[in-house]
Amino acid sequence: MAILLAPAGSPEALHAALEAGADAVYVGLKGWSRGGARGELDGDELARAVRRAAERGAELQVALNTIPKPRERAALLAEIPGLTALGIRTLIVNDVGVLATLRRRFPELSLTASIGCGAQTAADVAFFREIGANAIVLPGTVGPAEAAECAAVGGITVEIMLHMVEEFVLLGKCAMPSYVHLKPTAMPGGLPDVMRQTGSMKRGGVGACFRICQEPWELSSADGYRAAQLFPSRQLSRLGDVPGYLAAGVGVLKLQGRSLPPEQLKPLVARYRRAIDAARAGARPPAFPEPVLPPSWTVVGR
C-alpha cells in the first residue's frame, strides 16, 4: 500500500507532519543533505525524531544527498553506524557511487535514489534497481501513465514527488549557480578538511544555491534582438492525480519542502493525506477552496 512521505526541516516540522498524517517523514542529517543547514537535524535532534516518529507508527528516513569528494567519503560513512543504532533504516542518497558503496557496506539498509539522481524513465528505474537501490524518486513531471511504466519494471519502489517546485533546469542536471559563483564553506560540525561546495546544486545543497535562475536576465542575439528573460518555474501539485498514481503502482507519494515552517507544512500534508484516503476509499477527491500555500511559495531553501 502506498505511503505518504513528508518532509521536515526541524523538530517542530516533524511534529506537524506526523500530526497531519504522514506515514513517513524524511529529514536531513546536518552537513550531509542537499537541503542546506537550515533544513537539517543534528544527532540529538535526530534521536528524538526517531523516537517521536516511532510513537506515531511512522518511519523516519534520512537524506544524505550531497555528493562527498572521495576524501570526504570516509567521514560520511562514519556517520552510518550511528544512524543505524538510532533505528534509521532508510537513507536517501544522490550519487550512484555513494549508493553502491552503502549497499556494499551496509546491506541491511534500505536505499533510495534521490530525485537529484535525475531519473525519469523506466530505463533509469531498471538501472537503479540493478545497482541495489530499494526505491527511486521520480519528479512530479512524470505523470501517472509514465509512472505506471516505471513501476512495471518491478523489484524497486517507485516514489513520486507529487508536490514540488519545477525549476527551469531539471533537478540533477544543473550547474548554473556554481558557474557564476562557487564558495567552498566549512561543514557544520567543524569536520576537518571537509568543505561544502556552496553554489553547487549537487554538492553544496540547494539551501545555499545562489538562485540565479530566479534573477531577471537580458536575452540578446547577434542580430540585435533584446528582451527581458525570466527562467520559468512553477509549483507543481499533482493532488488531482493521486488516484492515478495509486493505480499506477507508485509506492510512495512524496512531498518536497524541508524548508517549510510547521504552519505551512501541516495543512499541506493534511491535504495529501485526505486525497490519498479518499482515493483508497474509492471516494471523489476532496475539494479544497483555496490553495494551502501562496503562489509565491518556493522550496529553493528546501
Binding site: I67, P70, G97, K202
Partner: peptide, 23 residues
Amino acid sequence: NVYTDAGVEILKGFGVARITPAS
C-alpha cells in the same frame, strides 16, 4: 553526473568505455 571514483567503479561494471565527468 559522475562525480567520484565510486561512480566510475559502478559504471565500469556496466562495461562503460569512457566517461566525461560532471562539469
